[in-house]
């Protein structure tokens, strides 16, 4: 989790930021799933025997969260592509210097 956050903050490359975000989110999903684990539990399938079973609700939640995460990553990647198309680079520093130049031209 911290690793993902670290990547987001430090990396200069937008693509890497998206990857970092994905790692960060996945870590949280794992955390959720771990909450659900009941010691000696089985999969929550109805059977004749009375078993201790893992709590299925967090899995469902995480399923939703994964979908959200996928959508976020997809949108992020799409934006990175668009940025690349417009700037021909996805390095933060280069883009900043480009923008500074164009600002000066306008003024």
């Amino acid at each position: 989790m911290v690793g993902g956050l670290f990547i987001i903050i430090t990396s200069q490359n937008y693509l890497k930021k998206v990857v970092g975000l994905a790692i960060f989110q996945t870590a949280v999903f794992v955390f959720f799933v771990s909450l659900a684990k009941v010691l000696d539990g089985t999969a929550p399938i109805l059977t004749k025997m009375e078993n201790a079973y893992s709590n299925p609700l967090p899995h469902v939640l995480i399923l939703t969260a994964i979908v959200v995460g996928v959508a976020t990553s997809a949108l992020g990647l799409a934006l990175v592509l668009q940025i690349y198309r417009n700037y021909e680079t996805i390095e933060e520093k280069e883009i900043q210097s480009l923008e500074l130049k164009s600002d000066k031209l306008n003024v």
């Binding site: 999969a43 399938i45 109805l46 399923l63 994964i66 979908v67």
Partner: peptide, 8 residues
């Protein structure tokens, strides 16, 4: 419908 699985 009644086991692990589903649309996603």
């Amino acid at each position: 419908d009644y086991g692990p699985g589903g649309g996603f």
